[in-house]
Amino acid sequence: MYPRAFDYVAPETKQEVLDILAERGGEVKVLAGGQSLIPMMKLRFASPGTLVDINRLSGLDSIDIQNGHLRVQALARHSDVVRSDVVAAENDAMASAAPWIADPLVRNLGTLCGSVAHHDPEGDWASVMLACDAEVVAESRDGGERVIPIAGFLVDMFTTSLQPTELVTEVRVPRYRRGGGNYQKLERKIGDYATVGVATHLELDDAGSISNAGIALTSVYAHNLKVTDAEQALVGNAPSVELFAEAARIAAAACDPTSDVRGSAEYKRDVVRVFTERGLTASLAAAQG
């Protein structure tokens, strides 16, 4: 309930933040929404020496279209994603996932970028980003801007390729011409982590065949898992019930869930199969709709 003591700084400019990270990166935690970090600090599972609060930076809370990407900046809240007309128009998987992140109050503070950077394998956003081939944009004082493909960014549970000197400034997903996406989440109640989550994304060519596919899983592997084999099974084919069932079988085989109070490994694996089928079906409907 009561965190350990720490130092606190709340710079007004990005440059100040980057300076602090450059000088004392290892002992510093960046505080954006704080909805994962502060609970861990209250339970004393995390005890950073210094918190750098970036909430006073301006111009870092947009959700917009930039250079062929849908861009979500570091201080855009989950609730901003839920409400965003741009997201609703541009990316079905994100629009589908956003309302099921945490609960309404947490969504008002928590951020998409923070969630991705935290890389909790039970986090929903990382799967959506994997399915949509997102990129993470990070900045540092000495290295400038670095664009990291999401698959390279997410290293292992609670571990990313972000350097201690770097600040995540945005996460962005490529725009698509004809496509659709979806997020299926089995949660026991609002605010729960996913027992199983499946993000799907499909793009269609003019002939109606699948030109690009994304499938990624939440809570059923040591980290959020992009199922490349299942994606490849889809690409180049005309969508069909059989094809989706085959992709779902591949996804179910690829995951490696653990048995716990939320269910047996066998159960979770089967829900991955069910959700992948449902998600692909919904994605196709969105793409054709």
Binding site: R188, K189, I190, G191, Y193, V261
Partner: peptide
């Protein structure tokens, strides 16, 4: 104890 906080000991919300 599995169920030592409100993330594991589940109290339904208005939604459920």
């Amino acid at each position: 104890c599995i169920g030592s906080n409100f993330m594991d000991y589940l109290v339904p919300t208005a939604w459920e």
